[in-house]
């Protein structure tokens, strides 16, 4: 696997202009918590851009800051510093009313646990109608759109069932329908297949892809599921509160004319020039503490400090 450095795009525009720059923009995002006298920096200058209609997987170890990022993007939390803009809205500048509108219309959220996505005493159809009801969508349109959503997600037959009458996969697809009910521009999914078996997981992910394709929804999905992360065009890795790497997948034709999937892993170079080297790279070359950099005409060489000294010596 080759690794290539990439620089995040930055928007220097202000306000909440729509259609200007990436659909999701996180620039030098910082979130600091204080617990029992200890400050925890959950996000340490995270940069991320996502274009409209993209389906991006976020991967990272536990505690790397994925869920914090999703909480900020969903409008439930606010960063300590940095810029975060979704669909042209500066989330730091939103009033309470705008934030409410943002949650209703701009983002949809899908939790890992299906039971946390659905009200247990409402049927699937009613659950899907709920966000529309909260967003004051006309009653007639609610019913039509709910039925359409369930149809697209392949759970139309579950419309009248309550959550406990459905399988885990069906529950999660209905929950996806709830998240997409108001046709949000962004779907944020936090481990949506984490509690499912592989078959259900495939069904749910297929539904997410279908929603992405059908409704043009930009999808940001946090996952540990390699099966999922390997089937998206772009996977962003987060480490220690920063985007550390990015894998882009594309279909390419080799010299024999065979079509194949090519995955390129990029390291992320932030605005301050910081670059996180993949752990397997540093481990393979025993890069530790200090490295030697050599600037060439078309690249920068990174050498173990000792080796560089030997060569020089």
């Amino acid at each position: 696997m080759s690794t290539t450095g990439t620089t995040t795009g930055r928007s220097h525009g202000s306000g909440t202009r729509r259609g200007d720059g990436p659909y999701i923009l996180c620039d030098n995002l910082v979130r600091i918590f204080s617990a029992e006298g200890v400050e925890v920096v959950a996000l340490q200058g995270l940069d991320l851009t996502v274009e409209k209609g993209e389906l991006v997987a976020l991967v990272g170890a536990s505690g790397s800051g994925k869920s914090t990022l999703l909480a900020i993007l969903s409008g439930l939390d606010t960063p300590s510093a940095g810029v975060v803009r979704v669909a042209g809205r500066d989330l730091l500048a939103l009033s309470a009313r705008d934030r409410l509108h943002y949650r209703r219309r701009t983002v949809g959220f899908l939790h890992q646990q299906a039971t946390a996505n659905l009200l247990p005493y409402l049927s699937a159809h009613e659950n899907v109608e709920l966000p529309m009801s909260l967003a004051s969508v006309p009653r007639a349109e609610r019913a039509t759109r709910a039925a359409e959503t369930l149809e697209v997600l392949g759970v139309a037959d579950c419309a009248g069932r309550r959550p406990h009458e459905m399988s885990g996969g069906q529950q999660q697809r209905v929950a996806l329908g709830v998240a997409l009910a108001n046709r949000p521009g962004v779907l944020l999914a936090d481990e949506p297949t984490g509690e499912l078996d592989s078959r259900s997981s495939d069904e749910v992910f297929a539904a997410i892809r279908r929603a992405n394709a059908t409704f043009g929804t930009t999808v940001l999905v946090v996952t540990h599921d390699a099966h999922v992360s390997e089937h998206v065009a772009r996977t962003v890795g987060i480490r220690d509160g920063r985007t550390s790497s990015e894998v882009r997948r594309r279909t390419a034709v080799d010299e024999h004319g065979n079509e194949g999937l090519v995955a390129e892993e990029f390291a992320v170079l932030d605005r301050a020039g910081r670059l996180q080297l993949p752990r397997q790279f540093t481990a393979a070359l025993e890069l530790r503490d200090r490295v030697r950099l050599d600037l060439e005409s078309d690249h920068i060489g990174v050498w173990p400090a000792e080796r560089g000294e030997e060569e020089r010596g």
Partner: peptide
Amino acid sequence: MTGRHASTRPRP
């Protein structure tokens, strides 16, 4: 739509 209770009647 094939849901058992799916209905568009008003449910205040």
